[in-house]
Design a protein around this nucleic acid. Structure first.
Lengths: 144, 144
DNA sequence: TTTACTGCAAAAGGTTTGCATGGGT
DNA sequence: ACCCATGCAAACCTTTTGCAGTAAA
């Protein structure tokens, strides 16, 4: 059992909610890879492994997993939301190729400075951020 | 007539597409304020001013206005996409309060450096970026 | 005259919800 | 025993699309 399942169980328990096999399976599958995912893909992966979890259950649990901090919304594309497993990874940003869809993850070391500045300047308590860049990768430049 | 209408007409013309009153009205209304907007809100503002533009026309034109560079997608929330007028503004980022919804726009001066670094490191040509931060504003801290 | 553009209404597709059943505590 | 969670199917809502009429070029 991955450690994320334990974290989620604790989170649920603190909220007076229940541990269920479906919830365990969802968390396990999200952390089975480090990739980004969407609801439909996660559902198919679960089915392939023999799980009977319904999409409704996935949709009902995603807000809880977000609140728990284990996943993050990363972008809305092709008509649906995309997420990424978050726990255990330093926060990172995305660079995407508009042509081939390649995603490079990178760290923006300067962001912390900007964050501090904003907290001082506006009195905010900043909890989360998202930085994405788009463009063309070396291979795709000139292919259009 | 706002200068954005002219820019969009030129853009359309280069693509062999047409100038229509509906397109002019949509562009004018987007740039009537500097606020963020969504399709439904834009549609209502147009109706209030007596325009007969349909939502279908707004939806059909948004990809073109995006491609033209006059607007940007900023975030997907409450089940629909939010945009902002883009032309004539230096690119800016958003800091949002999760409690009251206040949005502060700021400039992240360090981003250019990061962008350059990525272009060199990965051979990318970067066209666009998005940086958003979320947290609680000074008033809302402690109100929950 | 050609054919892109529009409004309308229907369709599509992702997400949410009502309901009856099942299962955790 | 209580009532939260699930699966199913229907509902919901934003966005897309087919169609017939209209109007740019």
């Amino acid at each position: 059992m991955g450690k994320e399942v334990g974290l989620f169980r604790t989170f649920m328990s603190r909220k007076g909610l229940r541990k269920t096999p479906e919830r365990d399976q969802i968390i396990e599958e999200i952390f089975a890879t480090t990739d980004h995912f969407d609801v439909d893909g996660l559902y198919l992966r679960l089915r392939q492994k023999g799980s009977k979890v319904s999409k409704a259950s996935i949709y009902r649990n995603i807000p809880l997993i977000l609140e728990c901090g284990l996943i993050k919304e990363v972008w809305h594309e092709d008509g649906h939301m995309h997420y990424e497993a978050f726990y255990g990874q330093a926060p990172h940003c995305h660079l995407r190729c508009l042509q081939c869809g390649q995603v490079i993850e990178f760290f923006a070391e300067d962001l912390e400075k900007t964050k501090k500045r904003l907290e001082n300047q506006y009195g905010y308590k900043i909890l989360d951020h998202r930085l994405d860049m788009k463009g063309y990768c070396s291979k795709c430049q000139g292919n259009f």
